[in-house]
Design a binder for these strands. Sequence first.
DNA 1: ATCGCTTCAAAGATATGACGTATTCAAGTG
DNA 2: CACTTGAATACGTCATATCTTTGAAGCGAT
Lengths: 231, 231
Amino acid sequence: MEIQGLPGRVLDELGPAIASGEIPEGAVLRGEELEQRFGVSRTVVREAVRVLEGMRLVASRRRVGITVQPKSLWDVFDPMVIRWRLAGADRSAQLRSLGSLRMAVEPAAAALAATHATDDDRRQLSSLAVELTVAAREADLTTFLGHDIAFHALVLRASGNEMFAHLGDTVGAVLTGRTEYHLMPHQPEPYAIRLHREVADAICGGDAAHAEQAMRTIVTGALAELNQQLG
Amino acid sequence: MEIQGLPGRVLDELGPAIASGEIPEGAVLRGEELEQRFGVSRTVVREAVRVLEGMRLVASRRRVGITVQPKSLWDVFDPMVIRWRLAGADRSAQLRSLGSLRMAVEPAAAALAATHATDDDRRQLSSLAVELTVAAREADLTTFLGHDIAFHALVLRASGNEMFAHLGDTVGAVLTGRTEYHLMPHQPEPYAIRLHREVADAICGGDAAHAEQAMRTIVTGALAELNQQLG
DNA sequence: ATCGCTTCAAAGATATGACGTATTCAAGTG
DNA sequence: CACTTGAATACGTCATATCTTTGAAGCGAT
């Protein structure tokens, strides 16, 4: 789900470099310089730069060059920007931001899902909760992670809100990053597992308040754990 | 804060056409066709299309053309996409989505602001709450709208979370759209005004729970009003 | 010395022609 | 009927020329 071709290759190198702060705010690049650096033509550089401009990471001005914009202007919701920041030096800050965002969105999504989920959503949710429990009991962390991601993405999608639904991938990236980061120090806590089942049951039963509460407990725990990890 | 030059002009016409559904999902455009339609060169068309591709509104494939992607793939958090949808036929759906998002985010932002706001933030917040009250009493709806937007943006910014902060403009667009939409049927409700002061006071006093609660009441009311308007 | 105008050059913006390349579709073949 | 093959097509990339904007240097007048 990337941008393809040569502009994509340029983006894959230039985007992370900017998003991670390696190329700092206010730095000025020249088109010709980028052509040489990547060994591509003007066309390719311009298209890549246009995409970065669309994300508000850079601004191009005549007679000046391509200027890296201040972070406050970046489209911090752009999935590519999020990925790039998660992969680079801004990782901690990005995880914190996303933690708060999850804290706000996921309980609300769970509440909405309790009233908006389709029958099929509910079935899948129950099923995932069970598989999650099994994977946890067997300490199969890879499978567990996959199901955990699917579970949270499904709740977000089942909320019926397209904007919530689109955070599914981002939350997935956070969960992946988290397990990669502290290298899965312990098997998933039984309490957290139970909460996932609670969320599933509440959504299936149409109990919005309960679903919201249980989900809030989950993300509160995740945020606390994150803050502990990051100091 | 737009993309400039000829590609910007192409975007300003093509983007809304796609985002509003006027050009439906699955439609295929050819680069040459766009060149003629807008009277610009390949260079310009390609750059504009690349930006749309970055927003996941279209995908370009060899031998096929430029395909409008299904809505489910669009970057619904991209500010440009949001603006385009608010301006077009998708307006209601977009307002609903944003309503739920506000419902999730703004109370959380208010709570965070109570502990993270700077002294200057708190001063400005108090000041805005007062001016808001004055403008409401004088039934100066234009001034009121401006202060209302500034108020919500400030709370989001004061939360200290960059992602929340970036929703300021979007919330502003919602508020503007709302007053334009139902043509300011009545002067702002005194109760809503009082709630804004409550939010400001709670944040200034560091009372996170109260700030969150008052903000929740505000956005709940806004969402209810919206649902009433839209049926 | 400072202000304001002119001039120049740097760098992006746009247009265009040529060629490369993947992909689809259909004709042809077994 | 299935498979192969080839040609047409539309995007992808490169190279080059020209235009436009704009920051900065130069310069004269007050």
